[in-house]
């Protein structure tokens, strides 16, 4: 963990040097792109949309890295940007398509149906359908914990929420998913 942290510090320092700016940034993107992408993709579902959000996230990182303070981990910082950008994107979509909060889950469900290998009988897709029924925050917490296997401490830094609240959110999310799986 400490080794990774110092590696990130070196990359950030390299980014601040004009000569090594692009190479350092490429290294940062390569290091974290997959994890960031899947976090976004699970929230946004559609690849094109997820790709747009990915680009926005890293453009923001490019613009903000000069002012990045090593108080938090680089990964945590990038994750926070990714979560915020994803939620902003979903809000914009809702506004553009005139979707109410209640219908937001249905909209994401439709997106899942349009996925290439979608099969509602398969457990993996059923789980995805169940996740889309959750409120935004519980969905994020569940994804980070269940798929990313992220610790509550780190999660609390990203979402700026207490560990206790996150545990409660995860608990509620699991219960709701169970209920969905059992009833569908």
């Amino acid at each position: 963990m400490t080794q990774q942290h110092s590696e990130d510090e070196e990359l950030v320092a390299g980014f601040r040097e004009p000569k090594t700016r692009e190479s350092a940034f490429t290294a940062i993107v390569k290091k974290y792109q997959e994890r960031i992408y899947w976090q976004i993709r699970r929230l946004i579902i559609n690849h094109e949309d997820a790709n747009d959000v990915m680009q926005n996230v890293f453009i923001k990182a490019w613009n903000g890295l000069d002012n990045f303070r090593a108080e938090s981990k680089l990964f945590t910082w990038l994750y926070r940007i990714a979560v915020n950008e994803s939620l902003s994107y979903l809000d914009q979509q809702k506004k553009r398509s005139n979707i109410s909060i209640e219908d937001a889950g249905l909209h994401l469900e439709e997106k899942l149906h349009s996925e290439k290998d979608f099969d509602s009988n398969k457990a993996v897709w059923k789980l995805q359908l169940a996740i889309q029924q959750l409120p935004e925050k519980q969905r994020i917490v569940f994804n980070l914990r269940y798929f990313e296997e992220m610790g509550y401490e780190e999660m609390s830094q990203i979402l700026e929420t207490s560990v206790g609240a996150l545990k409660a959110s995860y608990h509620h999310a699991v219960k709701k998913i169970e209920d969905y799986i059992l009833n569908h």
């Binding site: 996925e115 290998d117 979608f118 398969k122 457990a123 993996v124 789980l127 995805q128 169970e178 059992l182």
Partner: peptide
């Protein structure tokens, strides 16, 4: 039930 669900990525 949820614990036994696959964690594989369907996308």
């Amino acid at each position: 039930t949820v614990a036994n669900l696959p964690t594989t990525n369907p996308f």
